[in-house]
C-alpha cells in the first residue's frame, strides 16, 4: 500500500550510507558497523511521511514525537538522517564529525545539538530517558510517542531491564523501544559474549507488545513501528552489522574502526550500487 513511499525512501538511503562512511573516514575514527545496521530503522521514523509526527522546520516545538538514540556510538546515522530530512545540518557540517568545536560530537551531545534528545554514549541509559519523556507526555496529556533505539550488546546492561519492568507498570503505551539486533558487539558475537535469548519471550513476559521484523525492510519496520498497542512496545529489528558494505557485514572488526582511503572507495561504490536494501523482505 505504501510501496511507492518505500521505493522513494530506498532511493534516499544510499546517500545516507555514503555520508555515514565519509564522515567516519574523514574523522578517521567512529563506528561504521552499528551505524550502518540502523539506517533503515532511524529513517523509517524520521523520513518524510515516516512514523514520527514532528515538523522538521520546527524541530524543537514542544508537541512532537521524540527519538532517543540510546546506542550513542551510532550517531553518524542520526546526524546523516537529520540532515537528509531537513534539519539545519549542512553537508559541510556533517563532515565536521568529531572535530574540535563541532556540534556533531563523537557521541550525541544534547547541550550542543538540541535535535538529539539525550546525551548518550554510556550504554544502557537511553531507554530510561525515553521512559521519562513518555511519563511526561502522560502527565501533560500530550498525545505523542517516544522511541528509543538500543543495541543488543547494550541490552545486557541492567538498567534496560529496570525499564522492562517499570514501563508496563506505568502503562506507557506511548513508549516504543527498538532493538538493533545486529548480533554483534565489541568482544564478539552477542550470543557468545552474553546471550539475550529467548528474547521475545522475555519482553513479552514482562508485559510488552513485541514485534520481530527485518530491520532493513522499510515495509516491515513501518508496519511494526506504526502499530498502536495498549502496552509499551519492543520492536526487535533483525539487522546486519555493517549492512551495505560487503567486507563490513557481520564482521565485528568493523565495530569501531574507520575505513582508509582504499576501503572507503570500495565501500562507496558498493553503497551507491545497492538501492534495494530497504526493499528487502
Amino acid at each position: 500500500m505504501n510501496n511507492n513511499l518505500f521505493v522513494q525512501w530506498a532511493d534516499q538511503t544510499p546517500q545516507i550510507r555514503k555520508n555515514i562512511l565519509q564522515m567516519i573516514a574523514k574523522a578517521q575514527s567512529g563506528h561504521p558497523g552499528g551505524s550502518l545496521s540502523c539506517v533503515e530503522i532511524i529513517y523509517t521514523l524520521m523520513a518524510p511521511n515516516g512514523v514520527m509526527k514532528y515538523n522538521p522546520k520546527k524541530p524543537l516545538e514542544r508537541e512532537r514525537d521524540r527519538f532517543v538514540l540510546s546506542k550513542g556510538h551510532a550517531c553518524p546515522t542520526l546526524y546523516a538522517v537529520l540532515s537528509a530530512v531537513g534539519h539545519d545540518i549542512s553537508q559541510d557540517e556533517l563532515m565536521s564529525l568529531r572535530q574540535l568545536g563541532s556540534r556533531l560530537q563523537g557521541h550525541p551531545d544534547r547541550a550542543r545539538l538540541p535535535y538529539v534528545e539525550a546525551s548518550t554514549g554510556s550504554l544502557g541509559q537511553g531507554a530510561s530517558i525515553a521512559q521519562g519523556i513518555a511519563m511526561s507526555y502522560k502527565l501533560d496529556s500530550l498525545n505523542h510517542r517516544v522511541f528509543a533505539l538500543l543495541g543488543d550488546g547494550e541490552m545486557q546492561e541492567g538498567q534496560i531491564w529496570e525499564v522492562a519492568l517499570s514501563a508496563p507498570h506505568q502503562k506507557l503505551d506511548n513508549l516504543t523501544l527498538i532493538l538493533d539486533y545486529n548480533k554483534g558487539q565489541i568482544d564478539g558475537p552477542t550470543n557468545k559474549v552474553l546471550s539475550l535469548d529467548p528474547l521475545t519471550d522475555k519482553w513479552r513476559s514482562f508485559g510488552w507488545e513485541v514485534s520481530e521484523v527485518n530491520g532493513h525492510s522499510y515495509s516491515e519496520l513501518y508496519t511494526a513501528l506504526s502499530k498502536k498497542s495498549p502496552r509499551p512496545q519492543m520492536v526487535i529489528a533483525h539487522t546486519i552489522k555493517g549492512r551495505g558494505v560487503s567486507f563490513m557485514e557481520g564482521n565485528t572488526d568493523w565495530h569501531g574502526r574507520a575505513p582508509n582511503v582504499k576501503e572507503l572507495e570500495l565501500a562507496l561504490q558498493e553503497v551507491a550500487a545497492n538501492r534495494q536494501i530497504g526493499l528487502s523482505n
Binding site: A27, Q105, G106, H107, G121, S122
Partner: peptide, 8 residues
C-alpha cells in the same frame, strides 16, 4: 583519548 569525546 580524543575523538570519542566526553562520554568515554
Amino acid at each position: 583519548i580524543g575523538e570519542d569525546g566526553h562520554s568515554q
